[in-house]
Nucleic acid binder design. Structure first.
Lengths: 223, 223
DNA sequence: GCCATTTGTTACCACCCGGTAAGTACTTTA
DNA sequence: TAAAGTACTTACCGGGTGGTAACAAATGGC
């Protein structure tokens, strides 16, 4: 009974699928064919787990076992846990850009361009893909902080540009653009804290209601 | 046999005040007079630290050293780390009720009662007092989850009551009250993720702008 | 068939964290 | 003044985490 070496680490019930891998497909350790685990597969799982459990509370062992590999294997693909997070953030940003590219059109009024932004954003939140939201700078290295902050700045800039465009073309009206942007991001980002029940609302319904609320407010029209 | 005993664990630099106690006054360990540390003082520091660093990333040692006491001393006042959090949540809720009691008046239109709610709420967020927001159920015991969820439910109910009152008296108008409440809480709760710079905006300015945005929206009035 | 590269594995470490046991000093009370 | 409680301290444990060293098996090119 040596307690330094934990023998139980190796033995993992091969029949128990566990709830670890509820999010994405995963089998038991060793069941996966060699070579099917690439960076993108890892980031898919990692994004989901970071989003569901939080970055801190997701251990590398959690991620690895959801992929049916072992923790050190992750270090073949990534250089650190933070590296995984940063790549997830980058991936999320790229997916956002791709999603928005189809529907976006700079000739539309700013108001509509804000709507496009929000619909894509809410979609991706509910797909557990926007790791940026979940990334808390306080756990990151200085270099990581800079990178993460840059992505946040870019996406913030994107929304603010649309808001300004709306102000110019007369489709939107507001005082303080910073507070407005913060408010909008708060509304949608906080979805990551919703309990599972509330998340069952279809993304389209959520973004519809939010967009309505943001544009029209909830004050009764004064007569 | 066992190499698990790490001797270096005990040695800790006693002079290093560190930046742990930037939030509230603290000196080096032992500088504080006996008896000045009571539950309320602990909760004050703990709330701030939970809010600034997050619950997970605030160790009991962090809290203790900010109070110039040792970690086991905390166990004289509280039974566990979660206990501290739960008491902070309760304290925050009570402070909220007290703050709101002065200005609240059920005879006011719902719209104004929502405003009162939000002004108090934003104030207390900026005072780092609403630990409820920072408490992530995923780290809590089942019993803790229930308690925490109850406080959240109560404060949610409070806002929804005000919203419904506004809908009845005609001062507010909206479709889905749940989404509206989620949206509002998202806007204000997300303030806990703002970087320090943005938090310098005076609370009154924040709540004014948020309230304006919530009531009137940012869509230009259609002619 | 052999070798280099890719993709993993086992075994392990140093560190940190929540929590506990047991003892100590100050303060109140009878 | 002595007992009883209050408010701490030192020393320690078990368990978990990110990360590393060293080794092994599958894969593809020659």
């Amino acid at each position: 009974m040596t307690d330094a070496v934990n023998p139980k680490r190796a033995e993992r019930n091969p029949t128990a699928g566990g709830s670890a891998a509820r999010t994405a497909g995963a089998g038991q350790r060793r069941s996966r064919k060699r070579g099917t685990v690439n960076k993108d597969v890892i980031m898919g799982i990692a994004s989901s787990m970071f989003r569901e459990r939080g970055y801190d509370r997701t251990s590398l062992e959690d991620i690895a076992s959801a992929l049916s590999i072992t923790k050190p294997s992750l270090y073949y693909h990534f250089s650190s846990k933070e590296d995984i997070l940063l790549e997830c953030i980058s991936r999320g940003y790229i997916l956002f850009q791709q999603k928005i590219a189809d529907r976006d059109d700079v000739r539309l009024p700013g108001r509509e361009r804000v709507r496009v932004f929000l619909e894509a954003y809410v979609d991706l939140i509910q797909d557990n893909v926007l790791s940026m939201i979940v990334a808390d700078e306080r756990v990151m290295s200085d270099a990581g902080k800079v990178k993460s902050r840059n992505y946040k700045r870019m996406i913030n800039r994107d929304l603010q540009d649309r808001l300004e465009a709306g102000q110019r073309d007369g489709s939107l009206a507001f005082d303080d653009i910073k507070i407005v942007a913060y408010g909008i991001f708060g509304m949608v980002n906080w979805m990551t804290h919703w309990q599972s029940g509330a998340l069952d609302i279809p993304p389209a319904a959520v973004s519809d209601q939010f967009v309505k609320m943001i544009f029209d407010g909830i004050g009764a029209p004064r007569a």
